[in-house]
């Protein structure tokens, strides 16, 4: 077994197997994960992050496959993280996004990783972000994070990128449903895929009507791009649209502000998580908890009052940084 420092060093020079192993360790919330991120984070921040989200079957993977080829042709080094749901029954997952990865005739500089949302120990958005940063640190120029756009945590993942692409299809429902799903707020670019199908005009029209009602004078107005990814139609327009949004962000340091906002949120969230985790582990490992448990079991005190007593006792204790806390710092 290689030492962790060797793995990190190799990954930083572009070794795929080592990069891949680092992602696994972070994904499993291995005890070395904080160390890995501590080493790699300073190398990250150079890549451009794109979030792609949409309902199952909207054509995300096909779109990603085509986009990746275009980026690669233009000499970019691309990383993709595709997140799919896992089975709620077994915890297992069947991850199929690679079926659509069809790069065979040319050697591209390209790294694709599948993740199952249910098996991520450190939380979905944290782990995808960390995996993306590993790819970033290991030299990828463009990072695409692909998630199924159902549920808040998946949307959060997409939101934490520089450009968010929301993929709709003629089957996506009407404007009201799109609005309710919270997509208007997150999208920087709308794609209406399967545009050769009946209903594509309708959805594009409804979407346009909705965007027209919003005042975009001081901000970016999301374009609506029609594609048929499987027929390779319109993907070049999407590619240009991504470039345009990037130019928009680069002007007046908007990208810096956007990232700062995201990092602020991320940092706050991590503080909350760490805070709660640390205090709870301190409490659960302490003597008071065991005693209280006995008391409640023996019906000497009710659970509600027992909990209050424990928290009050903990607050009045002298604050000692727990061992676990120290480990990460």
């Amino acid at each position: 077994m290689k030492k962790i420092d060797d793995i990190i060093a190799s990954a930083l020079t572009g070794d795929k197997a080592c990069t891949s192993r680092l992602i696994s360790l972070v994904e499993r919330d291995d005890e070395q994960a904080p160390y890995i991120m501590r080493q790699l984070y300073p190398f990250s921040g150079k890549a451009y992050y794109i979030g792609i989200t949409g309902a199952p079957g909207a054509g995300k993977s096909t779109t990603v496959d085509k986009l990746v080829k275009m980026f690669c042709k233009n000499g970019k080094n691309v990383g993709v993280i595709a997140v799919d749901p896992s089975s709620p029954f077994s915890g297992g997952a069947l991850l199929g996004d690679r079926v659509r990865v069809n790069i065979k005739k040319t050697e591209y500089n390209y790294f694709f990783r599948s993740m199952s949302s249910g098996n991520i120990m450190g939380g979905l958005s944290r782990t995808t972000k960390e995996a993306a940063r590993i790819l970033d640190a290991c030299g990828k120029d463009i990072i695409i994070i692909e998630t199924v756009g159902v549920g808040q945590s998946e949307l959060d993942v997409a939101k934490a990128t520089d450009t968010v692409v929301v993929i709709l299809t003629p089957e996506s429902g009407d404007g009201v449903q799109i609005m309710k799903a919270g997509l208007i707020e997150v999208a920087d670019i709308f794609v209406v895929n399967k545009c050769d199908r009946p209903g594509a005009e309708n959805i594009a029209h409804a979407l346009k009507g909705m965007l027209d009602r919003i005042d975009y004078r001081l901000s970016w107005k999301p374009p609506i791009i029609k594609t048929s990814a499987s027929l390779n139609k319109g993907v070049d327009t999407l590619y240009e649209g991504l470039g345009e949004h990037r130019r928009y962000l680069n002007c007046d340091k908007k990208i810096k502000q956007r990232r700062q906002r995201q990092i602020r949120e991320e940092l706050k969230r991590n503080i909350e998580t760490e805070f709660i985790k640390t205090i709870l582990s301190d409490i659960y490992n302490g003597n008071d908890f065991g005693k209280a448990l006995d008391n409640v079991c023996e019906h000497r005190i009710d659970p509600q009052n027992a909990a209050r007593q424990i928290v009050t006792a903990w607050l009045s204790k002298d604050m000692q940084p727990s061992e676990k806390w120290a480990k990460g710092v």
Binding site: D84, L95, G96, D97, V99, N102, L231
Partner: peptide
């Protein structure tokens, strides 16, 4: 000329 398509299986 026609492009390629993948199973919409997953």
């Amino acid at each position: 000329e026609f492009g390629l398509w993948a199973f919409p299986l997953l």
